[in-house]
């Protein structure tokens, strides 16, 4: 069981809480306390809008342990409106083919079980196509 790890990250996972650099206004996700842009300390919390676009994507047919029940699924690099790129699954896809540049929005979904179905459910961000 990895309860503490998932618990610690809940704000990032549920609501895309990252950081903003007070020195250069650079938006940071995942949070890292040091601004990758100017190198100064950046601990101010910033909640991202969850809007972005597909930067790259691919489909996983053979999933690692813990994700097999959902295969096949699509993972993407999503460029958030505020700047950072994050790795996330795309969900609720229908027959519309995914393309680079498509607008997407964040939703909170089930990611996996921590261990088996007796463990906690890990929830986190995924993205769906924005209509």
């Amino acid at each position: 069981m990895e309860i503490p790890r998932h618990w610690r990250l809940k704000q990032q996972r549920y609501s895309l809480v990252g950081e903003v650099c007070p020195h250069c206004d650079h938006k940071i996700f995942p949070p890292r306390d040091i601004c990758p842009n100017c190198g100064d300390e950046a601990k101010e919390l910033f909640t991202f809008s969850g809007k972005g676009e597909v930067y790259s994507y691919t489909k996983i047919y053979e999933a690692p342990t813990g994700f097999d029940a959902n295969a096949p699924y699509t993972v993407a690099l999503v460029k958030l409106e505020e700047g950072p790129i994050i790795t996330a699954q795309l969900t609720d896809l229908d027959s519309t083919p995914v393309e680079i540049g498509m607008p997407v929005e964040m939703v909170t979904r089930k990611m996996r079980n921590d261990g088996d179905e007796r463990g906690i459910i890990v929830y986190g961000y995924k993205f769906r196509l924005r209509t």
Binding site: Q12, T58, E62, A88, Q89
Partner: peptide, 13 residues
């Protein structure tokens, strides 16, 4: 692990 693997990411993906 916290921001890639948790999304069901594989190295191939």
């Amino acid at each position: 692990s916290d921001f890639e693997a948790v999304q069901g990411m594989t190295l191939a993906a």
